[in-house]
């Protein structure tokens, strides 16, 4: 810091400690990803000899070819992508609309609706009652269990409401004088003004959906057609120690006749990379939005 023109010895030491610590943090954060990336591009048998760090020793695309041509993985990728896109688009739209409604200060049900949502942040029915509810609604063994139940979350609602409350009333007032209805005001005026906060919420919803596996495990584990990528990776992770997972067995059988082969470690590494790549590509571009949105909404774990 150039608060004082010249650096004292204290400044030098502090800077050294800080820069070294931060570089240590960067290394610790990135190394596991880079190591996994290297393993995923390395020949599986060669990897099992150990010693792969940041760079593949025997480069191959075979791990990716084996995994991506499995219809199970291919299909799970489609399901994951579909649920992410649908949940994000519908979720952002619905949450924004609910937020607009409860941001209207003169609205008679405003306090009631807010309370009904806020309470859901603190109370949940628990695993069993929720499971029975989903079953009686026909949402088990169904794609829609990924989209419909979580359409509006209370936390996101509050973040958007806080943002709308910070906008000037004059936009809404002048639109009303021009004779615009509530829905038109929401669509034409509020939505475009909320772009920054909606980008944040879209990121939160998309990441949550892409990363979810527990709902697949609970509601759709009986139906392979509805499996998601994270759930497939979870199964590989759980069975990696015992080598008993159906996918692992199938893959090693498939590889048995050829010169190439895959190992559980290589499969895990490759799937980890496939699962992570969309997130690594997307989040840096939304950074300025979510940093702003987070400080606006208060606290999220």
């Amino acid at each position: 810091m150039n608060r004082v023109g010249r650096k004292t010895w204290e400044d030098w030491i502090i800077d050294a400690v800080i820069y070294l610590s931060l570089i240590f943090l960067v290394v610790v954060t990135l190394y596991p990803f880079l190591n996994t990336l290297a393993v995923s591009f390395n020949d599986a048998m060669d990897s099992s000899r150990g010693g792969i760090t940041l760079w593949p020793r025997k480069f191959t695309l075979y791990n990716y070819q084996t995994l991506l041509t499995r219809s199970q993985i291919y299909h799970a990728t489609l399901v994951s992508a579909a649920r992410t896109v649908l949940s994000t688009v519908l979720g952002v739209f619905c949450t924004a609309m609910a937020a607009y409604i409860i941001s209207r200060r003169e609205f008679v049900l405003r306090r009631f609706v807010s309370f009904v949502y806020v309470l859901t942040m603190y109370i949940d029915g628990g695993l069993v009652p929720t499971y029975f509810l989903m079953r009686s609604l026909g949402l088990t063994n169904s794609f829609w269990v990924y989209v419909v139940p979580g359409l509006v979350s209370a936390f996101n609602l509050i973040v958007i409401r806080t943002y709308i409350a910070g906008l000037s009333d004059s936009y809404v007032e002048s639109a009303r004088i021009d004779g615009a209805g509530e829905f038109t005001i929401f669509l034409r005026i509020i939505l475009p003004l909320c772009k920054p906060v909606l980008a944040t919420i879209a990121l939160f919803i998309a990441v949550d959906n892409w990363n979810a596996w527990f709902d697949t495990f609970l509601y759709n584990s009986a139906n392979a057609q509805l499996s998601t990528l994270q759930y497939e990776l979870m199964k590989v992770l759980q069975s990696a120690n015992t080598m008993s997972g159906s996918l692992l067995q199938a893959l090693s059988r498939a590889a048995a006749g050829t010169t190439n082969t895959v190992t559980p470690r290589a499969i895990r590494a490759t799937m980890t990379i496939i699962v992570s790549v969309p997130i690594v590509i997307v989040y840096p571009f939304l950074q300025r939005y979510f940093v702003h949105g987070l400080t606006l909404g208060g606290i999220k774990e």
Partner: peptide, 14 residues
């Protein structure tokens, strides 16, 4: 932004 499934994989490897 990474799921716990991925993170647990990385932790186990490390």
């Amino acid at each position: 932004f990474i799921s716990w499934v991925v993170a647990a994989n990385l932790v186990r490897d490390a």
